[in-house]
Design a protein around this nucleic acid. Structure first.
Lengths: 225, 225
DNA sequence: CCTTGTGAAGCTGTTCACAGCC
DNA sequence: GGCTGTGAACAGCTTCACAAGG
């Protein structure tokens, strides 16, 4: 049975409403907690953890307060205890199977990335529309054709997919993913994909990141001469 | 001579203060404008462009208003004219040379990515600390040792670097980059890097993106059963 | 006395709705 | 009449500063 305190926005199903900005930082906190634990620490203050995570201590405390009250006033946070509760809030009590669509350079790099597993992420399948790639082995997995998507999604209970195709294929892939029952998509293709609003899409665009940095460079150059 | 209107926050050096959120969307608008131009259009309304970029029309107009007044009331925007001005605001009147540190799978994938060049980004050099990789050819370039960084930065006038190393090397690499004169860093390593505040760092963390999606999945699963 | 947890203030970003202009 | 540009309202996020509590 879950403990409920009166000012707590916990819902009946045990899911709290955590602000987006906070959710995006929880994985950072988790990593910082792991780093502190690796140093042999068992306890930390919000100052310690905020420093390790690169955020303002007040922001850290406010973020953690959305999960519950897991610290001790005058003392700090028990690192393992907090780790457990942050992981739980993120849904890391289970592993999440992910399918990667597109085994070009980026897709292959992602497939072989070690570091997902300790974060509750498991690459369950690779898919590509190119017949020349189907059947080849990447990261120890056999690349499946697009037609297999619905079966793969069903069998593995996959909910999350990564699009690592050229931009022009992204919308077709997204449509296929949605049709196969995927409800969360991480899109690396440099293109906007449209999906029903039951599906969450996050976008990572490498060119855009560099263009933003170029903007700031230009700014300081303009001032400096 | 630059035109100045009274309510305009333009500064003497011609550099305006554009909100961060707007800067992050300008590359998206640029891509959307390119897509409209490819369709043979020469003119578009804020509705058209907002739809192509996946944003609210009011937000688009407000964003563009920070650059200046480049539309025509009752008519819309001249696509080429607006493209030029958005590109200019982003600093794309020149190409920006970028150095990539770390030619593992991700670094190699980035090196060979076509699509940077049309966005004013040029991969100028590859660097790796692993002697086994130094001297090899990746994406048509010879991988240089870390010791060459200062010279490379000086010779090419590089201001922007990408860290594509394992997390444990990221801080050392960042220190070397800062020492070599780099002032903007895109960090793909799953680690926090500390730099002087004269240096801008942006972070792309693949695990974190997937963890955020997993959170949302867990949320809907909790409700759905 | 120390550190958490949190109202309240302040800031940034988004959206609305309409004045201004073609 | 139609579409842009923008003040004003609103929503969300960050920071402050302090009460609460070990």
């Amino acid at each position: 049975m879950t403990l409920l305190n009166p000012h707590d926005p916990e819902r009946l199903d045990g899911v709290r409403d955590i602000p987006d900005a906070t959710v995006a930082r929880l994985p950072v906190y988790l990593r910082a907690l792991a780093a502190l634990a690796d140093r042999g620490l068992t306890l930390c203050s919000s100052n310690d953890l905020a420093a390790a995570a690169g955020v303002n201590p007040a922001k850290l405390r406010k973020d953690l307060s959305y999960l519950g009250s897991y610290g001790t006033r005058g003392v700090g946070y028990d690192i393992e205890f907090l780790r457990y509760h942050v992981a739980r809030a993120l849904g890391q009590t289970q592993d999440w199977d992910v399918v990667i669509v597109g085994v070009g350079r980026l897709g292959s790099a992602l497939s072989e990335y070690r570091g997902f597993s300790s974060r509750g992420i498991r690459i369950a399948a690779l898919v590509d529309s190119d017949p020349a790639k189907v059947g080849t082995t990447v990261a120890g997995m056999t690349v499946a054709p697009m037609e297999d998507l619905p079966a793969l999604v069903r069998e593995h209970g996959v909910a999350i997919a990564v699009i690592a195709t050229p931009g022009e294929d992204a919308q077709d892939v997204a449509d296929a993913l949605v049709a196969a029952g995927i409800t969360s998509i991480l899109n690396f293709a440099p293109a906007l994909v449209k999906v029903p609003d039951t599906v969450t899409v996050r976008k990572v665009d490498l060119s855009i990141e560099l263009q933003i940095l170029a903007y700031h460079e230009q700014r300081v150059r303009g001032v400096a001469g």
